[in-house]
Design a protein around this nucleic acid. Structure first.
Lengths: 208, 208
DNA sequence: CCTTACATACCGACCGGTCTGTATGTTACA
DNA sequence: TGTAACATACAGACCGGTCGGTATGTAAGG
């Protein structure tokens, strides 16, 4: 069978490999994930793997990018995006995060960017820069809404939207880490709620 | 040369190995750190290593414990401990964290507990539990001061000291991660400052 | 239409190197 | 002389990456 593919998409098999890489590396990290593991998960053998990727590093980059772009698309399509009031988008984002951690008890799978950041920041400048770049986009995206909300509702408030967005990212990443070792994601939910309270305080909001 | 050692202390060479393990694993993580690397850093060879540790896992546990106990001692001896008012201890702790990240620009070395938590939570239950345990102690320690500060200064405030301490830990750990990829620790300082503002808000404090 | 030529997708054996752990010295000191 | 504290050498497993081969498809030409 031949796979006619629109130019932007990946071939089916390559996508399977990337998905397998994302899944395994999210759990075990980069070093503990074997090329053979990925092949096994994707249902093919090493020959096939190296047909699509020239090295293990290569699929790590692809997995990282794929993971981030998937999340970026999710957030781009999330319902809170369509809200007219930037303040609603700010708090709607927090709701969305809480929803996407899944049901109570069941532990959240981690963030591949965070995993790579911790494991590879000192050993792979390229991956570190990629993580930094993706993090910056998340911060930039959120701080955009924050700046608008501030302008519209609390123009006299004195806070830096970018700094607040960085706090948000740190809370999310740190909470994911704590959730992993506690084997429970309540801590993420609770911390988001406290961040919400902090935001209400910053913006002088009493409802929401 | 024989090293007479008080019963609680480690033999000189063993301590050197643990120190080397802490140093290298903080940077590279567990999997990317080789026994030979540790030996090289400590200035001896494999024979010596396996004289003191029965496996690589073994030194990882020792390194984790040693790292935590060292930090615990630092915090136990920190100046903010001696302050009589629990509120001063709460905010004094934040100052102490900021001080201990070192001078501007120079990037902070990470937290070994955080590194292990991210890398090994899904593959080594024992290490995961150890990380969870150490994190719990940090949270317990801070929430103790928080509870006292609340009782003494804002008994009508409505917040859970343990939840706030967990937020603090998540912020610190998340910020350390962001600092690693940004190659700058300003983000940690800024986020601590925002947490301080949140605390002031919770406790109804205007000075400090 | 059939054949030749070539491309894609994948298999699985294998190689070289690395890494953990072991087995066996060797040395210094009690 | 026995034992603690190492060094040295090596075994054995594993892992990343290569390579030759195969199956399938496709396009061109006579």
């Amino acid at each position: 069978m031949l796979h006619r593919i629109a130019s932007t998409e990946l071939p089916e098999t390559k996508r399977k490999l990337v998905d397998a890489g994302v899944k395994l590396m999210r759990e075990r990290g980069y070093n503990a994930t074997t090329v053979d593991d990925i092949c096994g998960e994707a249902g093919l053998t090493k020959g096939g793997f190296f047909h699509y990727f020239k090295s293990k590093d290569d699929i790590a980059r692809a997995a990282l990018t794929h993971f981030h772009e998937g999340k970026a698309r999710d957030y781009e399509a999330a319902p809170f995006r369509k809200l007219a009031d930037p303040l609603d988008r700010v708090f709607g984002r927090l709701d969305y995060v809480k929803e996407s951690v899944g049901p109570k008890g069941r532990v959240t799978k981690g963030c591949l960017i965070g995993v790579f950041a911790q494991e590879l920041a000192f050993t792979s400048p390229e991956i570190r820069d990629a993580c930094h770049n993706f993090f910056s986009r998340i911060v930039g995206d959120f701080s955009h809404d924050l700046a608008e909300a501030k302008a519209a509702h609390a123009s006299d408030a004195k806070f830096d939207p970018k700094a607040v967005a960085e706090l948000y990212l740190a809370i999310v990443q740190g909470s994911l880490m704590l959730a992993k070792v506690a084997d429970a994601n309540e801590v993420l939910r609770d911390n988001i709620e406290q961040f919400r309270a902090y935001l209400r305080f910053l913006l002088g909001v009493t409802d929401k």
